[in-house]
Design a protein around this nucleic acid. Structure first.
Lengths: 143, 143
DNA sequence: TCAAATTATTTACCTAAGTAAGTATATCGT
DNA sequence: ACGATATACTTACTTAGGTAAATAATTTGA
């Protein structure tokens, strides 16, 4: 039963990544690359650390993803005041193309979530969060 | 908002895989290997096709996973009547160790789901299924 | 019967994500 | 001031999963 739950989460995750990749193929992008671009669009220039903390992945994962995004000219990396850190910035091309891509992704998401009401979506997020929280590590002051 | 939902699903999926791997480390296993073993325990000997159809992944994924399980002596592969197909069987060692592993996994799952009531778990599965279902393909008789 | 189509698996190649260890810069404590 | 420690990122290696194309066995159809 629990078993089933994690199986189902895993399935849904794979399914959605697959569909996102399908949409992004047209732009020569992959889902995890898109999530980095989206992050930069939202917050502006960021260090890699800020990116992996926000996305909740490990540093090497972000190193790789950004290296690919740099090769394909979606982002540039600048040196920061702190020379250890690398600041990531969207390229002009990225700024220009992102609205288009964003729309396609939104359409896909609407399609995938067509069977859920807004209330159900809200519920789903909340239930998932109840699983994911790690109070010791996260240093979240919940008061 | 939708964005947030898929982000959350992805996170939860990664988190649970990570935790399962942590538990399985002791047995030199990985989560996807475990899911194959679990499948074989449940249904007995199966062809690779039956396995990937059940797990809902692509054939090459199962080829690799089973190759590793075979190397580490968790399963054997036999030739079937149809010589194209390879029938996968649990090794004696697997049969012997699985109850132990299963218990550890169950404990983990209980820990991860501690914040959810049974009703919430049921709800969560149902909501995820509403996203994942592809009515044409699945041919599931739910009665 | 036997060429053509289908099926089961595999191989090659790609991205994603993890751990462990390495490198370079920054900061801390004495 | 400077050695020890911490931080930001990278490198090397692992599994997981996907697509496309190759291989081998089976089935189909004229």
């Amino acid at each position: 039963m629990r078993n089933l739950l994690f199986h189902e989460i895993h399935q849904t995750s794979r399914l959605s990544v697959k569909e996102v990749n399908e949409v992004l193929k047209e732009f020569d992008l992959y889902s995890s690359q898109w999530s980095v671009l989206f992050c930069l669009k939202q917050f502006g220039a960021m260090t890699q650390k800020e990116i992996w903390q926000y996305l909740n992945v490990e540093a090497p994962t972000v190193t790789r993803t950004i290296a690919r995004l740099e090769e394909s000219r979606w982002v540039m990396r600048r040196e920061g005041e702190d020379k250890r850190a690398r600041i990531v910035v969207l390229s002009d091309r990225a700024e220009r193309l992102m609205p288009q891509i964003e729309q396609r992704i939104t359409e896909l998401e609407e399609r995938l979530l067509a069977r859920l009401t807004d209330e159900e979506q809200r519920q789903l997020i909340e239930l998932l969060r109840k699983i994911g929280v790690e109070p010791e590590e996260k240093d979240v002051r919940n008061d």
